[in-house]
Design a protein around this nucleic acid. Structure first.
Lengths: 240, 240
DNA sequence: TTACCGAATTGGTATTACCAATTCGAGGGC
DNA sequence: GCCCTCGAATTGGTAATACCAATTCGGTAA
């Protein structure tokens, strides 16, 4: 069949089908996956689509392609890329409980250090950017909208104030992988105003160049979010 | 021409040619790249190869593909993936001076926190792994080999002792992106013995559960590596 | 100047074909 | 019975072609 469109078939991202396939087969690191031709047939797509997905999975260090031999699974748990978790989250695959705890812990480490550096190095433009985001957030709250993306923008703007763009990339990954979770967090409209007050305290501490105060403000602010995540885990453990 | 093999033509990784092409054109975020067909012709490859490369660049948030419209450059400097830097380094594209300084700073932040957590949480297996790597390194040094990979393995084993696999993934990215630099560092054979002594002090502090001592040991150890990187930058600034 | 329509362009996808290296089993020699 | 050898099948790498559907963009008409 040439060029026949899928007949009413929902054709999700191939990576989103490939990852559960790998997980479901309980493949061990080093195991060989089916050949490209077999995967193409099994998922009802062309070989080109399979190769595109495999190129991504190889870059994320999930698989290894050996020419004329096969596709092999790598030690995805410890050598995999951090972006692999971002991709999974974007595909709707939920993080494991361990991953959630680890993400929360590392996010705290990163942001505590970031806000200190930000307070020490902030430029006028950085504070201006923070104020702009705060104003935009006020508007979203007033319109009863969900300020999840503005929340992320504020935290990332603080990291940006460190002047370290690599730092920004790393923290950005964490915000990308928790986007849906953050949306759910702010779905409860009562949370946004408190968060906004804490953001303003953070802004003031950073603007004043008071690293200790900024760190304290960040610690208190993160506590709220973290407890939400931990509650989510408990709820999931009880079976929703 | 069908199936004609390249005649003596060195056909490097397409991504390795695409990235300089983008940089050389001084494309701004939002700008459109040539179409897939044009890129394929320009680089002398098939459209499939171009699509494979673009799929990777899209995952790394370097470009965005809009169906039936075109390929657009994203804000690669701040929204790009951290893995994009890893990929660049693997392709032999040197880091910019700013990136080097930022990588050094963030690596210090991550490892200082990691070694504290490792000292607090290390299990028996973690110390065993550290000792194993230390022993292997002794062998490499005795054989006048380059212990660059053993050095990375040791630092990563410390991060692994935190029990945080997400932490491990992030730090792993930093070691992958500086692999060639680390090889050059240990090419001077006089550096390995000092490094090994410092590693042993780190191992002892972690094994003893002394977070403060471990942090001090890590701080001193990193100082040496960092000064090497900074000297490299100055040498490069003077034009090698 | 504006609104509209149609042709060209573009990414998305499947199919086919060929190459070269690896794999693996059958057959033969020891 | 065991091991070596050789050849066929398998596999990833790559190019070329064709078609679709949506976007773009130019020209034309109101």
């Amino acid at each position: 069949m040439i060029g026949l469109p899928a007949i009413g078939e929902e054709r999700a991202n191939l990576i989103g089908r490939l990852l559960p396939f790998i997980a479901h087969r309980r493949l061990e690191p080093g195991d060989r996956l089916p050949s490209e031709r077999e995967l193409a047939e099994r998922f009802g797509v062309g070989r080109g689509a399979v190769r595109e997905a495999l190129a991504v999975l190889e870059t994320l260090r999930i698989v290894e392609r050996r020419p004329n031999s096969g596709i092999y699974l790598r030690r995805v748990d410890r050598q995999g890329s951090i972006e692999a978790i971002v991709l999974q989250a974007e595909l709707g695959i939920p993080l494991t409980e361990a991953e959630v705890r680890e993400v929360v812990e590392l996010r705290r480490i990163l942001e505590m250090q970031a806000v200190r550096l930000a307070a020490e190095r902030r430029q006028a433009g950085d504070i201006q950017r923070l104020d702009e985001i705060l104003g935009r957030t006020d508007g979203v709250i007033a319109a009863s909208g969900n300020p999840a993306d503005e929340d992320a923008a504020f935290h990332l703007a603080i990291v940006e104030a460190t002047g370290n763009h690599v730092f920004l990339r790393v923290v950005n990954a964490f915000y990308l992988m928790s986007r849906s979770r953050r949306q759910a967090y702010f779905a409860d409209g009562s949370r946004a105003p408190l968060s906004q007050r804490q953001h303003r305290a953070l802004r003031d501490a950073v603007a004043a160049g008071d690293a200790d105060a900024a760190e304290r403000a960040m610690a208190g602010h993160l506590r709220g979010v973290e407890s939400y995540w931990m509650e989510l885990l408990e709820r999931r453990a009880r079976g929703d």
